[in-house]
C-alpha cells in the first residue's frame, strides 16, 4: 500500500511540471501533505496517541491545511496574477522532471547492495522531489512560487527521512519537525511583513544578485 502512495507522490511531481496556475500548485501541496500522512502512518510500526498527534500535526495540519491556506490567502490578499510565471516552458519542465526521475532512480540502483538499507523506489522519489523543489525555486520569478518550491523540497526531505528507516537517531526526527515548523513559521511571518511593505509579493529583485 505504501508503494502505491509513493508512486502517487511521484505523479504529483509530474503534475507540478505541467501546470501554469498557482492554485494547482497549492492543490499539489495539499495532496502531497495527505499522501505523506498516509505513508508515515503505514510505515510507523508502534503508533501511540502522541506519535499519531505529531505526525498529524506535521503532515495534515501544517503541510496539507495551514500552509496551503496561508499561500492562498497571500495570493488573494495581494491580488497576485494566478499564473506561475515560470522562466521555462511546460515541455521543458516535464522533460527535465523525467530526467530528474531517471537520474534519481539510477543513483538508487547504482548503490552497492550491502549498503542499501533504503527502498530504491522511496529513495528515488524522495531525491527527485528535492531536486524538483530546487528547480521550482530556480526557474520561477515570484516570491510566492519560491516558497512553494521550498515546500516541495521540504516534502522530499521528509520522504527521505522516512526512507532512512526506523533506526534514525532521535535527533533526526527532531530535526524534521523543527525544520518544518520553524522555517515555515518564519517564512509566514516574513511574507506577512513583506506584503505589508511591498506593493506586491512579486519582488523581482528577490533572490537575484544585484
Amino acid at each position: 500500500m505504501s508503494e502505491i502512495l509513493i508512486v502517487l507522490f511521484g505523479l504529483t511531481l509530474l503534475w507540478a511540471s505541467i501546470t501554469n496556475m498557482l492554485g494547482t500548485v497549492i492543490k499539489i501541496l495539499v495532496v502531497q501533505g495527505i499522501i505523506l500522512f498516509g505513508i508515515t502512518l503505514l510505515k510507523t510500526n508502534h503508533i501511540n496517541w502522541l506519535s499519531f498527534s505529531l505526525i498529524a500535526l506535521e503532515t495534515l495540519i501544517f503541510k496539507a491545511i495551514l500552509i496551503p491556506w496561508f499561500i492562498d490567502d497571500t495570493i488573494k490578499h495581494n491580488q497576485t496574477r494566478r499564473e506561475v510565471d515560470a522562466s521555462v516552458s511546460n515541455f521543458f519542465s516535464l522533460a527535465l522532471m523525467s530526467l530528474i526521475f531517471v537520474l534519481s532512480f539510477a543513483l538508487a540502483a547504482s548503490a552497492p547492495v550491502w549498503s542499501l538499507k533504503v527502498f530504491p523506489l522511496e529513495f528515488g522519489i524522495a531525491f527527485a522531489t528535492i531536486l524538483k523543489g530546487m528547480f521550482v525555486i530556480i526557474a520561477n520569478k515570484k516570491l510566492i512560487t519560491h516558497l512553494m518550491g521550498y515546500l516541495i523540497m521540504e516534502n522530499g526531505i521528509f520522504l527521505l527521512s522516512l526512507s532512512a528507516g526506523s533506526h534514525l537517531p532521535y535527533i533526526v526526527s527532531l530535526g524534521v519537525s523543527l525544520d518544518i515548523m520553524l522555517s515555515v513559521l518564519i517564512a509566514v511571518l516574513f511574507i506577512k511583513r513583506i506584503r505589508s511593505t511591498f506593493d506586491d509579493a512579486d519582488s523581482p529583485q528577490t533572490l537575484r544578485e544585484r
Partner: peptide
C-alpha cells in the same frame, strides 16, 4: 532567510544520507 533555509535543508538531506551510509 530563504537562501540559507534552502542551504540548511540541503545540509539536512546530507545528514540523512550520512545516516543511510
Amino acid at each position: 532567510l530563504f537562501i540559507c533555509s534552502v542551504g540548511i535543508a540541503l545540509a539536512f538531506a546530507g545528514i540523512l544520507l550520512l545516516v543511510i551510509s
